[in-house]
């Protein structure tokens, strides 16, 4: 049981590193989609007594959203705006990976400071979730394309969901519902926004989105 969870979590960490190092937007979308699928599976392995019906349902929904709907949506946007890769990010890909390792260390430290209750077995869950959140933040901060930022936001949400998954045993449905609502609406609205940005500025570099200052 634990090994499966750990496997997923390690995949989570690796996929984050991949996101930090990849420049092709299409690849990034696919990695993020895989991450989503992995996370969707996570709660099913966390529960000792085997997954309940509603958990199965939500996992399916999540996998559907994260693995299929969002990648599709983003790919459509990508095709629409005809951008292939992130050129000249604020922080280069090599440095990004270096930052990634620093984040990993900080996450491990945070994990040691915030021990989960005994019922939640895996010691990796807190650090890997924190690491995912940090990676998401980093993507938003270090990249220029609005699309990457949406992607970064999705990664951030993935990290949060990892915590949510850890809780799914104790807490009612509402949390998961909330996550889904949030994900759906946020991604939807942001997708629309990216469309608008593209139409208005004829590119999606957020570089140009800095007219409002002081």
């Amino acid at each position: 049981m634990n090994s499966a969870v750990d496997l997923i979590l390690i995949f989570l960490i690796l996929s984050n590193l991949a996101l930090l190092g990849l420049s092709r937007l299409g690849a990034c979308i696919r990695v993020a989609a895989l991450q989503g699928v992995a996370l969707g599976l996570l709660p099913l392995f966390l529960v000792e007594s085997g997954p309940a019906a509603h958990q199965l349902f939500f996992s399916a929904l999540l996998i559907g959203l994260k693995g299929i709907v969002f990648p599709w949506l983003l790919t459509v946007v990508l095709r629409e705006i005809q951008v292939q890769r992130e050129i000249e990010p604020f922080i280069g890909y090599g440095s990004s990976l270096a930052f990634g390792t620093v984040f990993l260390i900080v996450s491990l430290w945070l994990g040691s400071r915030l021990p989960l209750p005994a019922s939640m077995q895996s010691g990796l869950i807190v650090p890997s979730a924190f690491f995912t959140i940090m990676s998401g933040f980093f993507l938003i901060i270090a990249r220029k394309k609005a699309l990457t930022q949406v992607l970064g936001y999705l990664v951030l949400e993935n990290g949060i969901y990892a915590f949510g998954a850890a809780l799914s045993e104790n807490q009612p449905v509402l949390i998961e519902l909330g996550i889904l609502l949030d994900l759906f609406a946020a991604a939807f609205v942001m997708g629309i926004a990216v469309f608008h940005i593209n139409r208005e500025f004829e590119h999606i570099d957020t570089d140009k989105l800095s007219g409002l200052r002081t």
Partner: peptide
């Protein structure tokens, strides 16, 4: 000075 990335950096 207007950059979204920096703003998010502040939050982070």
């Amino acid at each position: 000075h207007g950059r979204l990335q920096v703003y998010i950096l502040y939050i982070a």
